[in-house]
Simulated scan of single mutants.
Amino acid sequence: MTAIPPALESHLAGEVTTHCFCWIIRRKDSVIHGFTDHDRSLLVSGVACEPQTGLSASEATNSLGLGVDSAEIEGALSSASITDSDIERGAFDAAIVETWLVNWASPDQLTLLRSARIGAITRSGGKFVAETKSSAVDLDKVSGRRITRLCDAQLGDNRCGHAGGAQTGMAVTIISDREIVVSGHQPPNADWFDNGTLTWTSGANAGRANVVLNHAPFGNAIRLSLRDAQIPDVKAGDQFSLLPGCDKSFAQCQAKFANSVNFRGFPHLPGNDAAYNYADGKGNFDGKPLVP
């Protein structure tokens, strides 16, 4: 239940009201944007909210229980503070959106209606639609260890125990928004960087990570094909760090990284095919491990 300050509650109970809605977007990189559907700027919770008539929100509901509440914010890319490039590079991913009810005639009369997190963002022409989800979405995240055949550690972290073998490199040629030619890498074999993680360390995309689909020789350099969303504003000379790919399997952990002693999965765990099979003498039911 939303707690409304007495002054604002008294105002809303009157015959004539002067209220509006304000949205404050707090990005993960500490950048804050403020907008309002009023026709002039308002200072809300210490944030200057600029008038944006093209910004609107769908109906939002707050429900009891563990269900994830969702809503949408729709607007035009008419504000100088929100650019198409920022949306493309993921600057607004997982940003916090606060929805405020404000008495524009007396901005100190305000109440926070909802705080949510931006999920998927879709764009069409000069318009964007951002889906927002309540904090209950965190309950869908996996916490703790999982009993699976595959490893649940990340290559190079403390649980993995392997150094990772990251190599630094630099973009040389931009073929497309998903293919680049890079230098500074020496892959030991043809699939070394497949499913690897590329993290940009300089340029407009610094801090952003992409997954490498595959790589191939390209003259004296190599060409990387990226699996994730397109990379905006990549320029020759941008630097990055590239981890080799790991498919989380016991076989690759043993053969590619010689790190089977630190494998964090359960490779001997029988699957449904073994658990529900008949002991007819044809299957492997002698108690030996399924994975050597």
Rank of each mutant, 00 (worst) to 15 (best):
V182L: 08
Q230G: 11
G287N: 04
R117Q: 13
S81W: 06
S143N: 12
D93A: 12
S10L: 13
G75M: 06
A171Y: 08
P270V: 14
C22M: 02
S225D: 03
I24D: 05
I118G: 04
S143K: 15
K248N: 05
W192Q: 00
N158R: 15
C160A: 09
G65H: 03
A166T: 06
W200V: 03
T122C: 03
D69M: 04
L155K: 09
R117N: 05
S249A: 06
H268A: 11
D84R: 14
G165K: 10
T36V: 02
G287F: 04
K133V: 15
I4F: 07
A130H: 02
G46L: 12
V16I: 15
N210I: 04
G196V: 01
A7H: 03
R264I: 01
H11R: 04
S10R: 12
L155I: 08
Q252L: 05
P187Q: 13
N189E: 12
V291G: 01
L226H: 02
N189W: 10
N214R: 15
I4C: 03
R146G: 12
A95V: 01
G283S: 11
G161V: 07
V212L: 08
K127Y: 09
R40Y: 12
I25A: 06
R27M: 06
A258P: 03
Q239V: 10
I73C: 09
A136M: 12
F257T: 06
F35R: 03
F263I: 04
R149H: 05
Q154W: 09
H19A: 15
P292C: 10
P217V: 07
A209S: 15
I25T: 08
L55G: 02
K282F: 14
D140P: 00
I96Y: 08
G14Q: 03
I231G: 00
L213D: 14
Q109A: 01
Q254E: 10
F240Y: 13
T173G: 00
